[in-house]
Design a protein around this nucleic acid. Structure first.
Lengths: 167, 167
DNA sequence: TCCATTCTTGAGTGTTCACTCAAGATAACC
DNA sequence: GGTTATCTTGAGTGAACACTCAAGAATGGA
């Protein structure tokens, strides 16, 4: 019926994720994304609609990757949080100055369109929710409020590492 | 001999500081700075040389203002640190999402000219140095390494508040 | 009063930005 | 093989960007 796409969409998203992660949203030009993905602007816009659209997919891919690194069957909830922090520490030590794509994306897209802000806030909520679920699983006797408090504390600490490693 | 400038340079810097603080460096256009300062591009460039130059002065003004709020004659060193955090908390609660101009500037100018990077790193060093001096004064028995450790911890915590309030 | 110097003005510079679109290429279905 | 649908290509779009500069206005000293 029709010609199938030639390029690997997942690979393109992964490449874009790397550029966004290293240089931030405003610091990344479409030219840089074309170079990283090896795609022409036409293909890029046909597939993702806009720079923001590509960023949203890259962000989702990032979350999926970090979650996958932390969440493994049979891993205790407390260990999952530890692994998340371990990934942040590795990023700070090895690729100095990348930080957390969710947290920086939230700041960088604060004055953009509502759709992008909602998307990044959703990922942010997912992050907090993940931590809350781990805390609740590790300490079943805690009330909902205490769980939310401690999850918030952990994410704030994560934000500290992220911001400090970028500065 | 010559016509004196009509505008108040300090007021212009203060106005620019507010815009940079609220919207970040890349999110702030020269048009916005012209509107905020009430100056034409010619005057702005004659006075500050470039957008980065204006940002550097705005950053210095920011540091001076926050230091002035914390450092008062007769205030104990520990209380000075407390006041710095109090200012950060006020900024997070009242003007939600501004964060610390030094920390965000360091991340936003990471891929700009060396001069700007050096300037922002210098302010960052001044911030860490201020904390270290306060810690050393509050706990004279501590060694230099312990002082540096604790100052670093405090700044990392500051970075956490800053990043989290922006997200 | 006149001159020298500097400031202000604002239209205009070239560049880069995100983004579009017509034309050609390619594949699946009949 | 013809048809149809979609993909790729890459030159090109207007807008926004940081920035400049010539001309006029204003001031202090001679």
């Amino acid at each position: 019926m029709a010609r199938p796409p030639e390029f690997d969409r997942a690979a393109a998203v992964r490449a874009a994720r790397g550029v966004f992660w290293a240089r931030g949203f405003p610091g990344t030009s479409m030219k840089a994304l074309e170079a990283a993905t090896g795609l022409q602007p036409g293909s890029l816009y046909a597939a993702f609609g806009s720079k923001e659209g590509l960023f949203r997919e890259a962000l989702a891919d990032y979350v999926q990757a970090v979650v996958a690194a932390a969440v493994r069957p049979g891993v205790a909830p407390r260990e999952q949080i530890r692994r998340w922090f371990a990934a942040m520490v590795d990023a700070a030590v090895d690729d100095g100055g990348r930080g957390c794509l969710i947290l920086h994306g939230a700041a960088e897209l604060a004055h953009h369109d509502a759709e992008s802000r909602a998307a990044v806030q959703e990922e942010l909520g997912r992050l907090v929710g993940f931590f809350a679920a781990c805390v609740a699983a590790a300490r079943p006797e805690l009330g909902a409020e205490a769980v939310a408090d401690r999850a918030g504390l952990l994410v704030a600490a994560l934000a500290g590492i992220s911001a400090w490693s970028r500065a």
